[in-house]
Design a protein around this nucleic acid. Structure first.
Lengths: 188, 188
DNA sequence: CAAACTGTACCGGATGGAAGGTACAGTTTG
DNA sequence: CAAACTGTACCTTCCATCCGGTACAGTTTG
């Protein structure tokens, strides 16, 4: 068997989104970007919908892998605080506008967003209780700030000054580390 | 002169984006949503591009008005802290997925994003210095958290529990208020 | 005052091209 | 061999855009 170029196609599709938005994802544009032909794409993805769905799945999978790499294990094996810190760190360093666009555009269709809803639920869930503790609240606010940074870099004309960016990252990391350790294992 | 339905059209276009994304903004869909016809839309907006551009401008204008309403004056007339608090408050209460989608999709074209880049620059700018003070850093982090909340509510399958949401808003508001007042006027 | 005129706001259908999707016969490569 | 493609041709739907025409408010002019 020849080596499949499936992931190569998906990566090309992400570049198209990054450059020109989800709307620009057509069989023709992705074929040109990936160096394959329209027929070749259709071999892997029978429809545009299927291609977009695969992009969501691919994104979620890479995301989970990066998070697991950051903590050195699966989500269920580490504490809530470690997961939270890993989320902030990973989000701060490897979030792209393409991912944001894809997620927002697919947020209405369950088949699209199910994969990354899982990731978010495992690694950076919203407070479970309606009356969260100060610790839970701060953890959530820091998750939101990490997401805000992601958004910022996707919208700004120029990227944030790297030194400011590092100070923000440090601030969020320090905040997740301070205070006494609560005993809490992962399988909630 | 008859009363123009221009803003009515723009509002309808936002509803289309909210429901089905930027891609779904066609003359037909917006015509149906607004109760006018394709020809009527074309009278106001000579092209699809022009319609999208007008949406960006309209959004920025309403945004600025809400911010000015929150502080009771123009951006140049109040302190940096007031602007920052107003930004968090307004963002937390009246941010929609449609706005986010529109901004992200138009972030590459200067003609689209110029209006709201102005709003952001006036009301919630990133730290000017590469070595920001702790105060500046925290203000920026809280802006990011407000944006993160915006993103959260645009992506989640269910809206955040209102009580949690209020606690987050209170947390951000309290954080912007504490500490000694620095003397700083608006016209930087 | 009223007929004539002007310009804005809007209707509704026609058109042409771009893009999704189908079909299938040939080619490369592990 | 068989999976993984290439390449071409074609159909169909959708959608941006164009444009001739209608309704009507306001203004001019006799």
């Amino acid at each position: 068997m020849r080596q499949s170029k499936r992931t190569q196609i998906l990566d090309a599709a992400f570049r198209v989104v990054q450059r020109a938005g989800v709307r620009a994802v057509t069989f023709e544009s992705v074929a040109a970007e990936s160096g394959l032909t329209k027929g070749g794409l259709l071999y892997h993805f029978p429809s545009r919908e299927a291609l977009l769905e695969a992009m969501h799945g691919h994104m979620a999978q890479r995301w989970e892998e990066e998070l697991e790499g950051a903590v050195g294990g699966a989500a269920g094996e580490v504490s809530a605080r470690e997961r939270s810190a890993a989320y902030a760190a990973v989000t701060a360093r490897s979030s792209t506008r393409a991912e944001l666009l894809l997620m927002l555009e697919g947020a209405n269709e369950p088949a699209m967003c199910a994969p990354w809803h899982g990731v978010l639920e495992r690694w950076a869930p919203a407070p479970v209780s309606a009356e969260p503790s100060r610790r839970e609240l701060e953890a959530f606010v820091h998750r939101l700030a990490a997401d805000g940074l992601w958004l910022y870099e996707s919208l700004a004309e120029r990227p944030l000054d790297p030194r400011v960016r590092r100070r923000v990252a440090e601030y969020l990391a320090a905040a997740s580390a301070e205070g006494p350790e609560e005993d809490e294992d992962g399988d909630a």
